[in-house]
């Protein structure tokens, strides 16, 4: 089955399509993209339960939009744009601090040899430091790129042009390259 996410345009408000078919399509998109959206929401600083809830909301909103006859040109960019706005609003509305426990809590495999963990920690700590020093836009560009979005899509999500995305990513990479190589 072809992925709907990569369709150039979705126009599901079509009366002929019928509610059941519309539901199926949204449910399919949900299955395809929910984990990506959830991860992106985590990177915006939402805690896992909020991120999961918000990710589901995104698809409910997609359904409502399509049912109203809205034409969605790039579903992937649309979904991430809504997730991005929703994530920021949730954080603002609930006045939540960014959910970012210490790096220690994020290091995988607590059962691993502690000495071994040191190396892993050091590397992650460096890149973590670099990422903390990025501007919010640079960070968002980077994480959206990690979810496989093209520059133009990232631009559509963040409301900036694709060339600006390229420039943000370039600066982000320069910074990260530096922290990784700093002794």
């Amino acid at each position: 089955m072809l992925s709907l996410l990569y369709e150039e345009s979705l126009l599901m408000g079509d009366r002929e399509l019928g509610a059941a078919s519309l539901r199926d399509q949204v449910a399919r998109l949900f299955e395809e993209a929910r984990e990506d959206v959830y991860r992106y929401l985590l990177t915006l600083g939402l805690a896992p339960p909020q991120a999961q809830e918000a990710a589901q909301d995104v698809f409910l909103r997609l359904y409502v939009a399509l049912k109203k006859g809205e034409e969605i040109r790039n579903p992937r960019a649309w979904i991430f744009r809504v997730a991005h706005n929703l994530g920021l609003k949730i954080r603002r509305r609930r006045d939540l601090p960014s959910f970012a426990p210490g790096l220690e809590a994020r290091i995988p495999d607590p059962a691993r040899d502690p000495e071994e963990d040191l190396l892993e920690r050091e590397r992650l700590r460096r890149i973590d430091r670099g990422i903390q020093e990025l501007s919010e836009q640079q960070r968002n560009c980077l994480f959206l790129r990690m979810e496989g979005l093209r520059y133009a899509e990232i631009g559509a999500v963040l409301g900036i042009g694709a060339p600006t995305v390229g420039e943000f990513l370039r600066r982000a990479m320069a910074k990260l390259k530096k922290v990784l190589h700093d002794e």
Partner: peptide, 29 residues
């Protein structure tokens, strides 16, 4: 190499699975 270090970091950063199983969206719709 830097991109791959970022990808690894991203993986670590987002490795927490959703706390509950995903709901049945079709039914909710």
């Amino acid at each position: 190499a830097t991109l791959s270090a970022c990808a690894h970091y991203h993986q670590v950063e987002t490795r927490f699975p959703p706390p509950a199983p995903w709901g049945d969206l079709s039914r909710q719709l």
